[in-house]
Design a protein around this nucleic acid. Structure first.
Lengths: 187, 187
DNA sequence: CCGAGAATTTGACAGTGTCAAGTTGTCCGG
DNA sequence: CCGGACAACTTGACACTGTCAAATTCTCGG
């Protein structure tokens, strides 16, 4: 029981440390060595578990997609797709460290099977919600693309600080108002 | 006035080199020294002109916002807001190196006055287009937020490779179809 | 023509990711 | 009980990065 050796679940601790670090410094300034130091291990320990910096971020993104799918699923329980949209941007706000990474392919190992699984799960939750709205189409309908794009763009613009105070102040209200009033022309 | 002993306009050459580099390697892997080498100058030359790595990226983003505003303005000439939306995502596709940087505040010097000017210009072009649609409101109406979010989210998701082939194949057609059929309920 | 001042280079420094090799812990078959 | 195999982790090194200070090179106005 040498104290220099980490006996608990180091993989878990490293992911947590990475998320904390991401929350403080943002993705571009994330340092593997800083993460290692925060977890109390040597600078090369992360490489052993994740291979790569991208590997660590992939693990974070995978966990993020898992939580994301959970949140969307929970919000969609009562059949109102507006709630799913609201949950989408709420997740981006509340889990910003995850969200800032999840849609940045150049930072991740896209071929990772776990990541792909988690990704496709949250995508399917999203599409199912949109399909309910549009009338049960299996694939990505134009309506679904539109809805997804809108909530995603809103989240990104909000996080990037591109909105004036009156909309950034209560983003949930704004997205709810918009999502409620929006319609899709047949034809 | 600005002629240097290197050869022409080094500032210009460095921005161009940065854009090329961004196009090849993406923003996260951009190296100041690689940019300098590409421009044929020493590794510390960029610092003199831009102070910082963020300074160089700020200059790139400023130029990007300029071109962006031009493109949106050109597209809005004939009063159809759908064209502006299409131009938005077309810009993201055609000028990906710029677009990938423009909405990433943590990579830039947000307080830079030139950047702020260029930003607010393209924003005002966008809002003016949306105001025409909504009936002349000056500030950011819910409709404008919705429209902006949608085209922006579409562009980001598209660039991130999140869409299946049938929509990524002809993105312009998809965004046009969506933008044409979308409506906004008057309460 | 020359000296001031700007543009650029040179050299150094701390920090980064990644790899190879060494060290330390764990566990299991005898 | 024990020895050795195996995984987890550390140590040390390497090339590369951004940034800064000092030295150099060019330009131009007097």
């Amino acid at each position: 029981m040498n104290s220099s050796y980490h006996h608990g679940d180091l993989r878990r601790a490293l992911i947590d440390a990475a998320v904390e670090s991401l929350g403080e410094t943002g993705p571009s300034a994330l340092s593997l060595r800083a993460v290692a130091k925060r977890a109390g291990v040597s600078h090369a320990a992360p490489a052993h578990h994740f291979g790569d910096k991208a590997g660590l971020l992939t693990a974070v993104a995978t966990e993020g997609y898992g939580r994301f799918a959970d949140a969307l699923e929970r919000a969609g329980r009562n059949g109102d797709f507006v709630d799913v949209g609201v949950a989408y941007v709420r997740f981006a706000i509340d889990n910003r460290p995850y969200f800032e990474i999840m849609f940045r392919p150049e930072l991740l190992h896209e071929d990772d099977p776990d990541l792909a699984r988690a990704e496709s799960r949250s995508r399917s939750v999203l599409v199912r919600g949109a399909a309910d709205l549009a009338g049960g189409e299996p694939s990505l309908s134009p309506q679904a693309v539109a809805a997804w794009s809108m909530v995603h763009g809103f989240a990104e613009l909000l996080i990037g600080g591109n909105f004036p105070p009156e909309v950034a102040g209560d983003p949930e209200a704004t997205v709810r108002k918009i999502a409620t009033r929006i319609r899709f022309d047949p034809e």
